[in-house]
Nucleic acid binder design. Structure first.
Lengths: 239, 239
DNA sequence: CGTATATTTGAACCTCCTCAATAGCTGTGG
DNA sequence: CCACAGCTATTGAGGAGGTTCAAATATACG
C-alpha cells in the first residue's frame, strides 16, 4: 500500500523504476494506531518519518489554554512527518483521527537518498512544498473566507486529494471526521460547524452522512468556495 | 549583503567555506523594487528564485471578491520564493511592502546544487520547511488566538527574526508595515487592527511609532501571545 | 499648499461564541 | 434484552468580538 505515495509522486513527475524501488525500500515495519492515539508527539525528536498507508490523521498544535488547532489533514499516501527529517524537533503533534496504518522510514535512509538520488530528493522536497502550499491556502481561507465558504473549500480540497489516490467514487468519498474535529480545523466552535453544515445541506451543496460526503454539484460548491485546485500542484512536469 | 542568508543558514547548522562560496555564487544580478511593486506575480512561472537583501516583502493571495490575505512576511536574508524552484507555478504573489533590494538565483544553478551538494540541498530544503513551520503557527494564531494575542505573537516572531539577522537593537526594531497591510496579515479589518494596537499600547506592551517597534516588556508580551520560539528552529545541529 | 496616504473615531450591525440542555447512536455488562 | 455510559449531533438564547460604513484627523510629499 505504498502505492498511494507512488501515485502522489507520479502525479507530479515521472518516477523511474529504480526510484520507485528505492522509495519502497525506505519503509520497514508497519505500525497501527487506534483512533485518538498520537502518531507523533509534539515536542519529540523522531528518528523516523511516517508514511500514512490508510486512515485519517491530523497535525495539530495545543495552546496553553487548552485550545487546539489542526493545521493539516492527511490521508493514505501522505508522507506525514517527512519534514521532521530536517527540522529534527516536532513543533506540533500528529494524531490518528481514525484507526491508521503507517510505515516508517529511518532518517538515515532518507539521508542516503539525499546523498545519492538528487531527483528523488527533489521529489520528496516537493511533497513538503505542497504541504506548505496547502498551508498558505488554509491561512487564506481562515483569514478571508467566511465559515461556510471555508468549509466548502475544505470539502473541495479533500475531494481532489482523495480522488488523486483513487479513493473517490464519482463525487462521493469517505471522510470520517467529527464535527468537533472539524471545528478545530476551521478554527471555529462546534456549534457553528453544526449550523454551517446544515446550511450547506439546506442549499443542497452536499449530502454528508455517516462519514461519507457526496458532493451534489461540484461546480457550484467550487464557486461558493472560490476553489482553484492549482495550489495542490497536480501537474506532471520535470522537477 | 548575502550575509543575512548565510546567517540564516549558520543559525541552523555549520556551513563549510565551500558551501558558503557556492551559495554566494548562485546569485547574479541585483534588482530593486519600489514599495507596492510585485516581486513575483501570482500565476507566473519564474525561472529564478529571489533572495531578499533588504526591505520588507509579503506573500499574498488575492480572492475573486477582491479580498487579500498575506500568508507570509519576509525580511533581509529570506529566500523568498525558493519553493518556486520545484513548485514551478506561483500559486501566490510576492509584494514589496517597502523598497526592496533582491538578488536572483537561476533555477538551473539550484538544480546543479541539488546534483552535487547534498548537505547544502538539505539546508535549502530546511529553509522552506521553516517557512512551513511558520505557516502552521500562523494557522494556529488565526484559528485559536484572539486578535490581540495574534498581534502580540506576530510582533514576537518578527522580533526574533529581525534579531537573528542583526537588525534589532535591544528589543527595538524597524518594522515598517501599515495598519491596512497588518489587517491582511491578521485576517481582520483595518479598523480592528487600529483598536487592537491601541489596546496593546495602552497596556504598555509596545511602543510602535513611525514604523519602529519597541517592545516594553518582552516576557509579558510573550505570555500574552503564548509565544514559544521553537517553531522558528533557531538551533544549530547537524541536518 | 494641495493631494494622496495613513491613522483614528463613532455607531449600527452581524457573525460567531459560550453556556446549557436535548436527542440520537453504539457498544457493553448484568 | 434492557439499562446505562459515552460519544456525537442538534437546538436555543444571550453576549462578545469583530465588521462595515462614513467621516475626521494627522502625516508625507512634490
Amino acid at each position: 500500500m505504498i502505492d498511494a505515495l507512488i501515485s502522489n509522486l507520479q502525479a507530479r513527475d515521472a518516477i523511474s523504476v529504480e526510484e520507485e524501488q528505492i522509495t519502497r525500500s525506505l519503509f520497514k515495519q508497519e505500525v497501527r494506531f487506534s483512533a485518538g492515539e498520537d502518531v507523533v508527539r509534539q515536542g519529540s525528536r523522531p528518528g523516523i518519518s511516517t508514511l500514512l498507508l490508510n486512515g485519517l490523521a491530523a497535525r495539530y498544535k495545543l495552546l496553553e489554554d487548552g485550545k487546539r488547532q489542526i493545521t493539516g489533514l492527511h490521508i493514505g499516501g501522505d508522507f506525514v512527518d517527512l519534514h521532521a527529517f530536517l527540522l529534527k524537533h516536532m513543533d506540533h503533534g500528529v494524531l490518528a483521527l481514525t484507526d491508521c496504518e503507517v510505515m516508517v522510514a529511518p532518517h538515515r535512509s532518507l539521508q542516503t537518498v539525499t546523498e545519492s538520488q538528487p531527483h528523488l530528493t527533489r521529489m520528496f522536497w516537493l511533497l513538503t512544498l505542497i504541504d506548505g502550499s496547502i498551508h498558505r491556502e488554509w491561512i487564506t481561507a481562515m483569514g478571508r473566507r467566511e465559515v461556510k465558504a471555508h468549509m466548502a473549500h475544505l470539502i473541495c480540497e479533500m475531494f481532489y486529494r482523495y480522488r488523486a489516490v483513487g479513493l473517490a467514487q464519482g463525487t462521493t468519498f469517505r471522510f470520517p471526521i467529527t464535527q468537533a474535529t472539524l471545528a478545530d480545523v476551521l478554527g471555529v466552535s462546534t456549534v457553528h460547524v453544526n449550523k454551517t453544515l446544515q446550511a450547506l445541506r439546506a442549499d443542497n451543496f452536499v449530502i454528508w452522512r455517516d462519514g461519507v460526503i457526496q458532493i451534489s454539484n461540484l461546480e457550484e460548491l467550487e464557486q461558493l468556495a472560490q476553489f482553484d485546485p492549482t495550489y495542490l500542484h497536480f501537474n506532471r512536469e520535470p522537477r
